[in-house]
Design a protein around this nucleic acid. Structure first.
Length: 232
DNA sequence: CCCTGATTCGC
DNA sequence: GCGAATCAGG
């Protein structure tokens, strides 16, 4: 797999949206999590809360906040800890961790007046199939107020099938040959009086039960009860 | 163990 | 430029 324009774009959006490297890799397909991370860094879009970050590992220990000449790293002399019994307290980490708190979509406030508030970047919580970005509860649209109470009326079947035989009308005395397709508004059953001993009327029994004719004398098969396979 | 991101380094 | 291997924290 190569990093095409679209794939890079998707990677960027998802990465900035907060999706994990694994999610991105899975979504893109054909690449590993490492590949995603490596590409993201190569693209320059890193800086995300990392479980391993905030620890000055092999990072040149953050020198003095000012520039000037960063003094060569002093030899990490292990304190000779005279006290044998007392565990020496670890020196406090030089650099306190991340500064800015997450600007959760707080109060948009400031209706108007001065500066048009910059649209706060939506905090994406997860990424769905196709790369669309799901948003967190904070960004969700306000719930739609419930409709005013109404008097409930019994559902009335549409006029089309009002006089048709519905599923509920079936019993062992009426023909249950289906007419139309299930799920369609006018789907119903034959409703004729049944051929005694059979679930269908005489006419539909003739369709349902056909004598096996010798080869070469068979009639073309009748249409299937539900019609031909439907095209979707 | 699983997950995560960061980094390294041979290709 | 790429990504597997590796590291390291949660």
């Amino acid at each position: 797999m190569s990093w095409t324009e679209e794939r890079i774009d998707k990677l960027t959006r998802m990465w900035e949206g907060g999706a994990t490297a694994s999610q991105i890799a899975e979504e893109l397909g054909g690449v590993s999590r490492n590949a995603v991370i490596g590409k993201a860094h190569r693209l320059g879009l890193k800086a995300r809360p990392s479980p391993v970050k905030s620890n000055d590992r092999h990072e040149e220990a953050a020198p003095a906040p000012v520039q000037a000449a960063p003094p060569p790293r002093p030899a990490p002399v292990e304190a000779p800890a005279p006290r044998a019994a007392t565990p020496a307290p670890r020196p406090a980490p030089a650099a306190p961790v991340a500064p800015p708190p997450a600007p959760v979509a707080a109060a948009p406030a400031a209706p108007s007046g001065d500066a048009p508030a910059a649209p706060p970047a939506p905090r994406i919580v997860s990424v769905g199939p196709g790369g669309f970005l799901r948003q967190g509860p904070g960004e969700q649209q306000a719930p739609i107020p419930p409709a005013p109470p109404r008097r409930l009326v019994p559902a009335k079947p549409s006029a089309d099938i009002a006089d048709k035989t519905s599923l509920l009308d079936l019993n062992d005395r009426i023909c249950r040959w289906p007419m139309g397709h299930p799920g369609e508004p006018d789907f119903h059953f034959c409703g004729e009086k049944v051929n005694p001993g059979f679930p269908y009327c005489v006419e539909h029994c003739g369709r349902a039960y056909q004598a096996q004719l010798p080869r070469g004398h068979r009639r073309p098969p009748p249409p299937l009860p539900f019609g031909n396979p439907r095209v979707r």
